[in-house]
Design a protein around this nucleic acid. Structure first.
Lengths: 352, 352
DNA sequence: TTGAAAGCGCTAACAG
DNA sequence: CTGTTAGCGCTTTCAA
């Protein structure tokens, strides 16, 4: 094909034999040079590099993959939204992958996607990847992935029956617990929870952390209200919380919902944090600047992506190594102005 | 390789010859079936599909690419941040690409990246792609991309000297103009501008639109202050604006900076929108829920990505077609509560 | 409608 | 240190 579509004198892409000819070496030597292999004389190396430059030579990746059986690329399954968490993770993964010399293929899923994560993984496998990253997955039932490449699951306890799985970024429960305790320490009788979609592992973790904190202090556990991560949902389902005078402290499963909730509270005529304290989760870039600045939990997405990818690549390149779990990254409660001591008095000053 | 390394009974991945043997047809017929080519009897097709299923057969993409000269994948150069605009575009591109049957490879750049966009493009070309999307690029000087695949540039007037370039999503100036006029219509004497980094085409477009609107009504053009798209920068550089009593209306180049600016205004003891009106750009998901809800310009990222990608694929598959420019997508000014009539009198007064 | 033969451009052994 | 020989698993002719 190459060259066949070119009508004029335009030269089709140079191949390694062309470089070899020009450099006066064998094709194999060109291959050695391009792959930075040892056992090439400095002189030969120089000549090859020169010839390659002159010809604009570029290794053909398809041929390389076919011959070697390795694609040198990893596939990422990411949620197809611009939500801060998934997007940050995706960017972090790409950067980390590039550092390790792997290219990145991406497939996104949407919630309610018929094919779902399994379909995305299939598609990645069709494309050809040496490893797969599943970022912030949803529980779609015990998924038996028939995968022969290592899989990294970020933000979920590896619900996949795949051969070699590494996990990273699990442990949101600890932070959710810290967030809840912060509110309790402020004197609130109990803490309400505005949860994420129950099928998300991330949502479950945070809910568990909240529940644990409450249980540890013997507080009553109010019914959970559930949103879909969006500020809009935080606003909608938050209206009920906002109007309930018993509610003085809420831990929202992410910052977007926290912001929506705050709006609902404000519109209900109550003040944040004077009447209602709110804690978010993620520390999105605007969190420090909204009104009031949001107390929240900061996740080190880059660190999670980086360490997870390092482990994945290790597993790819050392097929016999055991599956591992990345160490939990340092997380941090960022206290700003959306939380304050519980309103004093009989519990709440009724305002309508 | 396949089979050669397998010592025991472990089966290595099935190849098309294996399927052919099982189905009792030639390898070429398997190829025809897998590619949905015509001229295969229904019976043969069925037998092949059956055998493929039984063997868990999967077309080898590397071999396919090598033999056909087409990779069926497109590369995306995206800014490596979770900023709403770039992230939305990336997700939209992936979705659109999948709809057209192309896989997606991603390379991110960071501002101040030594290699920059050119380096990212190189890396994509090394990986092997049939087309390239450059999303929201930065002006790094007239870039002569030595590229032999079609390029789609989103959000910039194609500063690339590449053979076949399509552009999409250019035209922010019109909306920036509408945003500015909205403020002028509200009775503000003039409108200040909190701009994005000057090297971003998106930032320039918005600034031009603002400038045009001002000029058209003969208003004075106040000095521009510049941020880096982040809420933090909006807050920092916004403090000067916030404290200047002459400032009653500001058009910020994106919502994050608008939010940071509002915080600065509030901290300066002035009210939004009573004393200062603020308009953002992007309509990020929290824009409707921050305090006050933000008047902003909504960009249809999905539509831009979708149409741009359609054109790119068309150009890939019809090499002789002319380079085109996607039609400008419908954009929209969303009026919320961060804008109000100019404070009357020499000082400021409450609004309606 | 089907199949045989000939590569695509590279890496993997194995010799020199 | 360098080259030779075989494929990798497909798609592409071209012939039947």
């Amino acid at each position: 094909m190459a060259g066949a579509t070119v009508s004029g004198g335009s030269t089709s892409a140079a191949r390694s034999v062309d470089v070899a000819r020009l450099a006066g070496v064998s094709q194999k030597t060109v291959s050695r040079v391009m792959n930075n292999e040892p056992y090439v004389s400095e002189d030969a190396r120089r000549r090859v590099l020169e010839a390659a430059g002159a010809l604009g030579y570029r290794l053909n990746n398809a041929a390389r993959a076919l011959a070697s059986g390795r694609t040198r690329s990893i596939g990422v399954v990411s949620l197809g939204t611009a939500l801060y968490g998934p997007a940050s993770l995706l960017m972090g993964i790409e950067r980390a992958a590039r550092d390790t010399g792997y290219a990145v293929r991406v497939v996104t899923t949407l919630e309610g996607d018929a094919a779902g994560v399994a379909g995305a993984v299939e598609s990645l496998l069709d494309q050809g990847v040496d490893g797969i990253v599943i970022s912030e997955p949803i529980d779609e039932g015990e998924l038996a992935l028939n995968v022969d490449v290592p899989v990294l699951v970020i933000g979920a306890p590896a619900p996949y029956a795949a051969p070699r799985v590494v996990t990273a970024g699990v442990g949101a429960d600890i932070l959710a617990r810290a967030a809840t305790e912060h509110l309790l320490d402020l004197g609130h009788r109990t803490v309400h929870h505005l949860a994420g979609p129950p099928r998300w592992y991330a949502a479950r973790d945070r809910r568990e952390g909240w529940r644990t904190a409450l249980a540890a202090r013997g507080r009553i556990e109010p019914p959970v209200v559930t949103g879909d991560w969006s500020a809009a949902s935080g606003y909608l389902v938050g209206r009920a919380l906002a109007e309930d005078p018993a509610v003085t402290a809420v831990f929202a499963a992410n910052d977007d919902m926290a912001i929506g909730l705050i709006r609902a509270v404000v519109e209900a005529g109550r003040r944040v944090p004077d009447d209602v304290s709110v804690v978010g989760y993620d520390d999105i870039p605007v969190a420090a600047y909204v009104t009031p600045p949001l107390t929240t939990v900061r996740q080190p997405f880059d660190a999670v992506a980086g360490e997870g990818l390092r482990l994945l690549v290790h597993t790819i390149e050392n097929p016999d190594s055991d599956a591992v779990r990345a160490s939990d990254p340092p997380v941090e409660l960022v206290i700003r102005a959306s939380t304050a001591p519980a309103p004093s008095g009989p519990a709440q000053a009724p305002r309508t």
